[in-house]
């Protein structure tokens, strides 16, 4: 049983941890980003945060995502993986974005292919291409969000 006051304390500690992590990155240098194809040389020298917000549903940023973006504002590069309807909002804040087809879109597309392999590889490439120093999740983790597809048959007949 978590005491109601504990949540605030945990968030506070997380914020302290994030600030500490950012300071460490600046002192000791960011992760090696040699393979991060989507970072310019300048951005490779800075810190990168990657947020998975795959289940954003509204036309506006959810409170959770807004809060997360505020917390990560110290990162030079912030990338959000989210549905495209919030791209323009993210762009106006100077963030970058990626997207993945939602499970329901995949199912209704009628395209039967090896989606599990495609999504696993795509998720891995997003991580590799951006070389994040820090990853956060708003809503489900990508592996949970795509669970039904990733755990399905390799030749899933999704049509």
């Amino acid at each position: 049983m978590v005491h109601p006051g504990n949540g605030i304390m945990i968030r506070h500690l997380r914020n302290i941890g994030l600030r500490f992590a950012l300071r460490s990155l600046r002192i000791f240098g960011a992760a090696d980003k040699a393979d991060a194809l989507l970072l310019s040389q300048q951005r490779k020298r800075g810190s990168v945060a990657l947020i998975w917000a795959l289940a954003e549903t509204g036309d506006r940023l959810s409170a959770g995502l807004s809060e997360k973006l505020a917390k990560l504002s110290g990162f030079e590069t912030v990338v959000v993986v989210c549905p495209p309807r919030v791209f323009s909002l993210l762009r106006s804040e100077g963030h970058f974005f990626e997207t993945l087809p939602a499970p329901d879109e995949i199912l209704s597309s009628g395209i039967s292919s090896n989606w599990a392999l495609y999504l696993r590889r795509r998720i891995a490439r997003i991580r590799k291409n951006w070389g994040p120093d820090f990853e956060a999740v708003v809503g489900p983790e990508p592996e949970v969000y795509f669970e039904a597809i990733l755990n399905g048959s390799e030749d899933s007949g999704l049509s």
Partner: peptide, 9 residues
């Protein structure tokens, strides 16, 4: 295109 939402919609 960052306006890809129009195709999705």
């Amino acid at each position: 295109s960052e306006a890809i939402e129009v195709a999705r919609s």
